[in-house]
Write a protein that binds this DNA or RNA. Structure first.
Lengths: 365, 365
DNA sequence: CTGTTAGCGCCTTCAT
DNA sequence: ATGAAGGCGCTAACAG
């Protein structure tokens, strides 16, 4: 009894045909008589042949039918984040339809003293295209690596990379709509709670120096929209992850910094729904009402079944964005077409925004 | 200007060494003089060589350094489920440490009239090991496919597969502990809300015929534990997904079926925390109190920041389970060792279980 | 420490 | 519709 796995050669011999004919029986990419194919397939079953060896096929064809999906510095974080998850959803289904496999790539191996080590998978795994779901930063070593390997790239969310496809959403427009909604209600003092700025994560109030260091595109776009709107922004609070608890912590910091209801900001623009939800929870904990005492707006349009009320938020088509990236991959693979897509967003007015507490009718202390 | 990507041969020529020496410079798996390596690396940079072609390496070495992770019938569902996500977390990090890539595989291509079509990736993608996170079912075509291809398997959660490694948790013990806790409090009438039974998903009350059709292992283990405990089980409600809304729907069905508080079941054993949380929400919606009017216990030990109070639940070490699967993969790869691990669970008593409403002191209507 | 020699398994011409 | 031949890029085994 032989322990070696049978190869196409063995099958061909057993079926009494040539290797090239046997190959046709599996690939279905050429003319072959039904009877011959049957003979080959029978021989294959007989020998316990499990189909053509992928490595052989890959080497010969130059295609892997695998897409590397780079999802951030930590897989963990991406999995926990419903936003990432929805994008992955759309992406994997669009790729699956084209029979493309998804190889999960952490992207960053290590981040020590600002030195970025690229994950070995990025250097050595076989893939036809790479997708950088959460954008590329300036002089991104991952992009460098992929470039050198000749692997085309699809970037999600900005920091356009020369020669790569790009899929983004109208972050700016979404935030502008939010601000207009709030100023329309009469708000004048704003605070914003932001997503992480860059790979070296931090949590806390942002000063002018730090403000220059925004490298993550969604964060930058959304922040720029607030800054550019001309409203009175009394503080920027940077979080280190887009989670409910970070939003709650941010709100506690806000209440601590602005203890006086009379001068407290009346509207909070959070860069994600989870942050916004956390902020609302912290307000409730502090015995404050939303939106009577403070208005809170989010971003994403997540469905939060446990959230009582409905968040005012910017709905972004997450799954569609993922699908769009998948389509960009397929276009790249089909004929090298580089695409650039901006997806629209929509402001949904919920129950967490309303007129600011009026100075004329202060609430009972 | 040549458009073809340089190969190791080109690099070797440019560096004035043999190909095999050049190979050593990259693989670091053999003795090579630092000066020689430097020469090779310089030549590589010069030519814009991005490292050894994976296909060539794979064919020659017979290793892909890729693990196929089969996560269920729909990627979607797995991403949305915090339980899956945590397991994936642990798994990917354990594999990442060994520089193994994770290839996401849907597993089931189609499910029509009970006919299961295996995803093409499972048939044709290169992988060294496959992990079936959510178990194998009886006469599983995916297992069949992998067998034929000679790919070793790690199964999470039961339905042991001959010759494969297995990682499971003590489902049975966890549910038994829950039941004992509840009977200890004085409960006598139980209902259980279960996870999906099998691939053909359904939602609703379970009759005897349906009860025979449980094929998904965690569901079966947890249900068997209730059935075997001898308590008075007045109903089994099957859900089609482990989500908050399904738990809420289940509870509404329970309240509808048992309108009379005097004969209503007093304790609900849900097979997941999300189902339990949904059940609690539905009770609140109906104006009932937990645990005064009904006790609810879950399973998983999830951290639900939005849930007020704390669920009584069975804590299973999700991430550790994932890591354990990763270790099983590595053992399989290292020397073919087949392992079998059962992870312990722990009952956490929260605020959602308490004594049943006493007949002596009925609540005001 | 470096070079030589052989394929790994497959698919694509091209000829028949 | 089938067969023969060549080579994709690399690395393992061995020899020097």
């Amino acid at each position: 009894m032989s322990h070696a796995r049978p190869t196409l050669t063995d099958v061909a011999r057993a079926a009494g045909v040539s290797v090239s004919t046997a190959s046709l029986a599996f690939s279905a990419s050429g003319p072959i008589a039904d009877s011959t194919r049957a003979k080959v397939l029978d021989a294959a079953t007989e020998l316990g042949y499990g189909g053509p060896n992928p490595a052989g096929r890959q080497l010969r064809s130059g295609r892997y039918d695998i897409v590397g999906v780079v999802i951030g510095d930590k897989l963990k974080r991406s999995f926990r984040d419903p936003v990432s998850v929805q994008v992955l959803d759309g992406l994997t289904s669009a790729l699956g339809e084209a029979d493309l496999g998804v190889l999960l790539v952490p992207g960053v191996e290590s981040y020590v003293d600002g030195e970025i080590g690229v994950d070995p998978l990025l250097t050595s795994a076989g893939m036809d295209v790479a997708v950088l779901i959460w954008g590329a930063h300036t002089s991104d070593p991952r992009v460098e690596t992929l470039r050198k390997r000749g692997i085309p790239i699809v970037v999600g969310e900005g920091n356009e990379v020369e020669g790569s496809s790009l899929v983004e959403i109208d972050d700016h427009g979404g935030v502008v709509a939010t601000i207009e909604h709030l100023t329309g209600l009469g708000h004048e003092r704003f605070v914003t709670i932001t997503l992480p700025f860059r790979m070296g994560r931090r949590e806390g109030w942002v000063d002018d120096a730090r403000r220059e260091l925004v490298d993550w595109t969604p964060t930058r776009h959304r922040l720029d929209a607030v800054l550019g709107s001309g409203v009175d922004l009394v503080g920027i609070y940077e979080t280190e992850a887009s989670l409910v608890e970070n939003g709650a912590a941010a709100m506690r910091a806000i209440l601590e910094r602005f203890p006086d209801p009379a001068t407290r900001p009346t509207a909070v623009v959070a860069q994600s729904d989870l942050l916004a939800a956390g902020a609302v929870l912290a307000l409730h904990e502090a015995g404050l009402r939303v939106p009577e005492d403070m208005s809170v707006a989010g971003f994403d349009g997540l469905d939060l079944p446990w959230f009582s009320g409905e968040l005012t938020t910017v709905i972004q088509p997450l799954e569609a964005k993922g699908r769009e990236m998948g389509l960009a991959v397929r276009a790249l693979l089909a004929d090298g077409t580089v695409t650039r897509t901006t997806m629209p967003v929509e402001l949904r007015i919920g129950t967490t925004t309303g007129p600011p507490p009026s100075a004329a009718a202060p609430r009972n202390s």
